[in-house]
Amino acid sequence: MAKFALAKEPKPLPEFAFTDAEDKPLTLAAYKGKTVLLNFWATWCAPCVKEMPSLDKLQAEMGKERFVVLPLSLDGPSRPKVAPFYADRKLTHLGIFFDKGKKALGALDVSVLPTSILIDAQGRELGRLEGDAEWDRPEALALMKAAVESAK
């Protein structure tokens, strides 16, 4: 987690929309009250592919009551590959979400894939990590648990 850049103080995020696997529009407001690890990824991004199993394990370890990993796929024309990608890798704890038109990517000033943004229960950015990480390692779990606990 040495690459995780903690914000000096939690910063408000701009509004942005995304869709779920059924194309239902969503915003971050749907997760108000939960700590969110927003992960920008794509099936064609090798480092993204590498870290997805650890994100799945992180979600399994943390549970969904107060924490959610929100993997936001940037797959456009390759979108039909996402569900089979999850099935092939047995990613059973993560939902499927899409950043249509890369609007969230632009709104959150993301320029590297993968990028993960830790968001507190009030919807503010706590920090981000550009590049892949092993999210199921003890130091990553400790960081996520601390973020969840600070929301109490």
Rank of each mutant, 00 (worst) to 15 (best):
K90W: 00
L143K: 07
K64Y: 01
L94H: 03
S73T: 13
T27P: 03
V110A: 11
E134M: 07
L105E: 08
P84C: 11
D20G: 08
T35M: 02
V82W: 01
M144L: 15
K103F: 04
D109I: 01
L6R: 14
E139Q: 09
F18W: 12
V36S: 07
Y86M: 03
K11E: 13
P14H: 05
A146K: 15
K81T: 13
G95E: 02
H93M: 08
F98T: 05
I117C: 04
T115L: 04
A60M: 01
E130L: 06
V36H: 03
T27M: 06
F85C: 03
G127P: 12
L105Y: 11
L6S: 14
E139L: 05
S78C: 00
M1Q: 13
A60I: 04
T27I: 06
Q122G: 06
D99C: 08
Y31V: 03
P25W: 09
V112L: 07
L126R: 05
P71S: 01
F18P: 11
W44G: 09
V82T: 07
K50D: 13
L129K: 14
E65V: 01
A87W: 02
P47N: 08
K103M: 13
I96L: 07
E134V: 15
S111P: 05
L94F: 04
V69D: 07
S54F: 09
A30C: 02
A5K: 15
D56V: 03
D75Y: 04
A60T: 11
G76Y: 10
A142I: 10
V148C: 09
D120A: 00
V36D: 11
E134I: 10
Q122W: 04
L70K: 04
D109E: 15
L143N: 01
K81I: 01
H93T: 05
K103H: 08
W135H: 08
F98G: 14
D56I: 04
A147L: 10
A140G: 12
K81H: 10
A121L: 11
D56Y: 11
K57A: 15
A104S: 12
S111T: 09
E134Q: 14
D109P: 01
E51K: 02
E134W: 05
W44T: 14
D136T: 02
A29F: 01
W135N: 00
D109Y: 04
G127N: 08
E149Y: 02
Q122M: 06
G76P: 00
K32F: 02
E149Q: 14
D136K: 00
G101Q: 08
S111W: 08
P77H: 08
S116T: 09
P114R: 03
G131T: 02
F18K: 04
S73R: 05
A107N: 02
D136S: 13
A133R: 10
E61A: 15
V36R: 10
V69L: 05
A21L: 13
L55M: 09
Y31G: 01
